[in-house]
Simulated assay, not measured.
Amino acid sequence: MILRKEYWFEAAHFIYNHPGKCRNLHGHSYKLFVSVEGTPDVATGMIIDFDDLSKVVVEKVIGRLDHRFLNDLIPLSTAENIAVWIWEQLKPDLPQLCQVEVFETTDNCVIYRGA
């Protein structure tokens, strides 16, 4: 079974080696989906409590990226590299993590399932 929760953050960045307009400083309203996979616990009936998931995601990711300049943490801050960075922040505390989805715009998304 897969459990998925949605988050948002606002951030600015530029892609220094981009041949077009994305080389300039700009911002996005990012949407993030975090998915964990497992079998629901017999006693609780849950894979993980949504609140427990959010505590990890907010502490490890949202609190560090929201209203920030992404290049300070992820120098080549493409959607692909942001997804990998998010995975690396979450996986140690969420061993059942199976996928992150990073929407840079409403119609541009990267899905990462780990290396």
Rank of each mutant, 00 (worst) to 15 (best):
K5L: 13
V110E: 02
V61F: 02
F50N: 06
H67M: 09
E10Y: 04
R4G: 08
K55E: 14
H26D: 12
P95D: 07
C22F: 01
V61W: 04
T105F: 10
M1S: 10
A115K: 11
Y7T: 02
N108A: 14
L25H: 03
G38T: 07
Y16R: 14
V102I: 15
L97F: 06
A83M: 10
D49M: 07
Y112F: 14
R113I: 10
A79I: 09
K55Y: 07
N24E: 10
H26K: 08
L25Q: 01
F69L: 12
F14W: 09
L90Q: 03
A83C: 12
G27M: 06
F103E: 04
W87Q: 03
D66F: 02
K31S: 05
A83D: 09
R68W: 00
G20C: 04
V34H: 08
C22Q: 02
D51K: 14
V102Y: 03
T105L: 04
D66N: 15
I15H: 09
D41C: 13
H18E: 10
M1H: 11
R113N: 15
F14K: 12
N17W: 12
C22L: 03
I48A: 14
L53F: 04
W87H: 01
H26N: 11
L53Q: 06
L3W: 04
I62L: 03
V58R: 06
K91N: 06
H26M: 10
F69D: 01
L32R: 05
V100K: 02
K55S: 06
G20E: 08
D107S: 14
E37T: 06
W8Q: 15
P75F: 09
F9T: 08
Q96I: 12
L70T: 01
T39R: 13
E101M: 14
L94V: 09
I47D: 05
Y7S: 01
L32S: 07
V56D: 06
R64K: 11
Y30C: 01
V110P: 08
K21M: 12
F103V: 11
I62D: 01
L70F: 05
M46E: 14
A83V: 09
V110L: 05
L73N: 02
L53S: 04
Q99P: 05
L76P: 03
F50I: 15
G27Q: 08
D52Y: 05
D49S: 11
G27S: 13
Y16M: 08
G20W: 02
L94Y: 09
K21H: 08
F50L: 13
S54I: 00
L65P: 00
F50D: 10
F9Y: 12
V56C: 04
E104S: 14
E88N: 15
N17Q: 10
P92M: 13
P75D: 04
I47L: 07
D51G: 14
T44K: 12
